[in-house]
Amino acid sequence: MSDATSNSLHVKSNDSALAHVAYVLKSNPITMLAFSMFAVLIVAAVFGPSLVPYDPLTSNAANALQPPSLAHWFGTDNLGRDVFSRVVVATRLDLAISVAAVALSFAIGSVLGSIAGYWGGWIDAVLNRLFDTIMAFPLFVLAMGIVAALGNTVENIVYATAVINIPFYARLVRAEVNIRRESGFALAAKLSGNSDIRVLALHIFPNALPPMMVQVSLNLGWAILNAAGLSFIGLGVRPPTAEWGIMVAEGANFIVSGEWWLAFFPGFALMFAVFTFNLMGDGLRDIVDPRQRT
């Protein structure tokens, strides 16, 4: 009996959360567009390899450098590989790198920022100077240095991208936590028997989520660019793996001779992804903010 009621309650709250997402999407056409574009990216990342017409790695010298046609929508590259297949298959790797990097910096930044914002004092001072130090470097150069030092692997691109993004999250969380540290609901939570850590983690931190979501989505686009940039200059992902950054780098050599499609389509995919994430920010914020519900 009690199970049934709690179940029905759960379904109900689930329903209203879905309804809220639907409302946010409906009320803002740009959010709707951004989420549709995001859906395209997700489909490409999840099902890409089984959907594409050609193996992205199989070369066919006889068919090299063909312009876009019905058989090869985005043309073929200098080794005769289908550019369309390679662009679609690369989505998974590029999204994985950026999502992993952003998730890592989100998690570490949130913890460090919360600590600095809640307890203040010398911990705050030390952490802040640490973030200042990271931000004092040109961030891309710092990422290059990290990958070059740690070795040329996908994991290291993720770590490098995460490290350079941590200060942004930490500072945002620190500010959001700091203004709520003495708020009434934090005091009320203590009166309800919550220890400092519970108050921080369960009451104060979730309130920092709306602005964090905007940061996350902008950052996803940025992380993709960063990963592609690293690959472009030869760090990180290595050929023949399909990855937008390398494809642009390799294709760039052929632009002078008129084979524009080699660099254009992966570049367009990159732009599409960054654009999607930038548009998604406001929508994500509205979804995680209960105050948007009426």
Binding site: S183, F185, A188, S195, P206
Partner: peptide, 23 residues
């Protein structure tokens, strides 16, 4: 917060809005 007497001593806040977690 962990004291058994925590439950016996409670408070109603001046600004109700501020004393509720908006989430």
């Amino acid at each position: 917060a962990r004291d058994p007497r925590r439950a016996s001593i409670q408070m109603v806040f001046q600004d109700a809005t501020d004393s509720f977690n908006p989430r």
